[in-house]
């Protein structure tokens, strides 16, 4: 990723003496003979450079988002595994014959369309994310020449919001189509899962749209470039994850019922 120009950079121009483990952050620890050179492989050389340097906050928030997504992934893993268990589960009927009453739920065709829309929204989101880091604009901002980044990113963010809303609306229509065929959440095992999976995912997207709107306003209000970058970057990773997740869930519903 392109580096921004932050004052850090200027004070890193100082001559660094790497052989003394000087990370250029201004203070270098007194050289430590025992631990020097990683001789006792307590990896002194890969030691963390602490909370200094550009993008430190960005990377921190990104890592937080990733951990959150990891736990969210486990959430869906749990649901999907119950899906498979319940699918193969059956019961002994009164005649002691094992019977499996799983009838797959027909996928409303509109979901294909929604999938396309969601994919598109991921693309616009990624474009918005990239614009946040365009070097020349970052430079302008730092030199105080307005907020070109916000100007460039806003359209893409709004596009993503619209597409996301379209997706949700599409899902809503899909549910209605099922409802008209009298297939409800409560109807049978597979419908349980269809509504549960789509519903939970839709809820996640709902939160995502909330975050997008937050980012939208943030782009307007926040003066600090880094916070704006963090905002958009975080939302976009979340959004991509939800898109990817949907691909998995959709294939599950379409091909594995």
């Amino acid at each position: 990723m392109p580096a921004t120009i932050t004052p850090n950079k200027t004070d890193q121009e100082r001559k660094r003496r790497l052989e003394d483990h000087d990370n250029g952050s201004g203070r270098r620890p007194p050289t430590d003979k025992r631990t020097g050179g990683g001789g006792d492989n307590d990896n002194w050389n890969e030691r963390s450079s602490g909370r200094s340097g550009p993008y430190e906050r960005l990377h921190r928030y990104r890592m937080g988002i990733f951990f959150a997504l990891a736990s969210d992934l486990m959430f869906f893993v749990a649901i999907v595994s119950t899906f498979f268990v319940n699918q193969s589960a059956g019961h002994l009927n009164v005649y002691n014959h094992f019977e499996n009453t799983w009838v797959p739920t027909a996928i409303p065709p509109i979901l294909w369309l929604n999938t396309a829309v969601l994919f598109l929204s991921s693309v616009t989101m990624e474009i918005a994310r990239r614009t946040m880091f365009r070097e020349t604009d970052v430079m302008d901002e730092w030199l105080g020449l307005g907020k070109p980044i916000t100007r460039r990113a806003l359209p893409w963010i709004s596009a993503t919001i619209v597409l996301g809303l379209l997706f949700l609306a599409g899902q809503w229509i899909g549910w209605h189509q099922l409802a008209t065929q009298h297939i409800f959440f409560r109807s049978n095992q597979s419908s349980h899962f269809f509504y549960l999976i789509t519903g939970v995912h839709a809820f996640h997207l709902f939160l995502g749209i909330g975050a997008l709107i937050a980012a939208f306003t943030g782009l307007y209000l926040s003066r600090q470039l880094e916070s704006r970058q963090i905002l958009v970057d975080g939302v976009s990773w979340y959004w991509h994850a939800m898109g990817l997740l949907w691909l998995f869930l959709f294939t599950l519903l379409v091909f594995f019922q």
Binding site: N23, D42, R47, S48, G50, R51, G64
Partner: peptide
Amino acid sequence: TASSINTLTTIIRNRCEGMTWER
């Protein structure tokens, strides 16, 4: 879950100069 996200990120990113994993 929220507080664990905080804990993990803190441990990974906020260690000070020279605080290696083995230390």
